[in-house]
Simulated scan of single mutants.
Amino acid sequence: MSTQTPTPAAPDRVLHDCRDAYVATLVELAATDERIVAVVNDSVGSSKLGPFGAAYGPRLINVGIAEQDMVGVGAGLANGGKIPFVSAAACFLTARAMEQIKVDAAYSQHHMVLCGMSPGMAYGELGPTHHSIEDLAWLRAIPGLTVVVPSDPGETAQAVRWAAAHDGPVYLRISRMGVPAVNPEGYEFVPGKAVTLREGTDVTIIATGTVVIRALDAADLLAQAGISARVLSMPTIKPLDEEAVVAAARETGAIVTVEEALTSGLGGAVAEVVVRTTPVPMRFVGVPDTFAPTGSVEWLLDHFGISAQGVAASVREVLGR
């Protein structure tokens, strides 16, 4: 577990689309590695892969709206020595091509990077068919698949670099919702390691992806009420940093998980560690066992309590305050 200096909450914080960091890094890597190719399901625009196509032409392969074929083509390219980045809206990549992800990517242990674009509830107004809230729960159940959820553009870029060099299948959850930088200068992404963004003694908030900043904001609110909250960013859902989870349980005595997904994703993974090693009170912030409705991203997050105020309320509940 690494410790970093926290980023203070600020009303004027600059927000960035993690897809931009993804594509910029991919273009840079492809310049020196001809094995890198991109495979898409008629989603060049939403994956922001235009610059990649402009630079490398035939190395951008558009299979049309055929997600199972897309993953199969990626596996074939990997089998032929290429490093495919398979990019599609997370809801369609995971739901439509689950068998191919399981068999062609994970079981076959191909070196391919599955890039779930615009995950969570980023497509807000398009409703339940376009929300990707099940992906973390689904994919963490697949053996041999690394699941990474970057929290900001800098971490996204580092995760792309790591995945390009990692000899095995990876799922990258790449946000379109604007997020600020939460990791400090000099931060280094290490798969399977949590990042301590804020120290605390009363409770630990474990968050992943776009909602890490909301966990930090919640910790600020709680501090005003005299509650000391540790904030862990968990960029890797699988493998999970069990050491950091156990330390949090032992040292703070209570845990709240936060995710833009069904709470059986990060929350379920953390709970499995806690109940097996160090049982402590827990609460889960995310989408419960329901389909998320239609609405703006901000409305949906607030609706499910995935906000600074909602996280703070869950902390008070688990602490009985």
Rank of each mutant, 00 (worst) to 15 (best):
I227S: 06
V274H: 09
E125L: 13
I36H: 01
F284E: 01
P84H: 02
I255V: 11
A247Q: 12
I205P: 01
G127M: 09
T294K: 15
V280T: 06
T257E: 07
A21G: 06
V63N: 15
A194G: 12
G72H: 04
A157K: 02
K82S: 10
D289K: 12
Q309V: 04
V147G: 01
L60W: 11
V160W: 04
V280L: 07
T196V: 14
I61W: 12
I205V: 11
T5A: 15
G265Y: 09
G267R: 06
D69W: 00
L300K: 04
K82G: 03
L172F: 03
S132D: 10
C18S: 12
R283N: 13
M234N: 00
M98D: 13
D241F: 06
A261Y: 14
V245S: 08
G53D: 10
I237E: 03
I36Q: 01
V160H: 00
V258W: 10
A95C: 01
V274E: 01
D289H: 08
G80P: 00
A271C: 10
H166C: 14
A194N: 08
A89L: 15
V63E: 12
T201H: 10
V39S: 02
D241G: 11
L262F: 07
A244Q: 09
H16I: 06
C18K: 10
S296M: 02
L172V: 12
L301R: 12
L145N: 06
G226H: 10
C18V: 09
D220K: 07
L266K: 02
S46G: 14
K102E: 14
N79I: 14
S87N: 12
V273D: 11
V170M: 05
L145Q: 01
A207K: 02
I206H: 06
E242T: 14
G50Y: 04
G168C: 03
S307R: 07
T94Q: 06
I255E: 07
D42Q: 10
M98C: 11
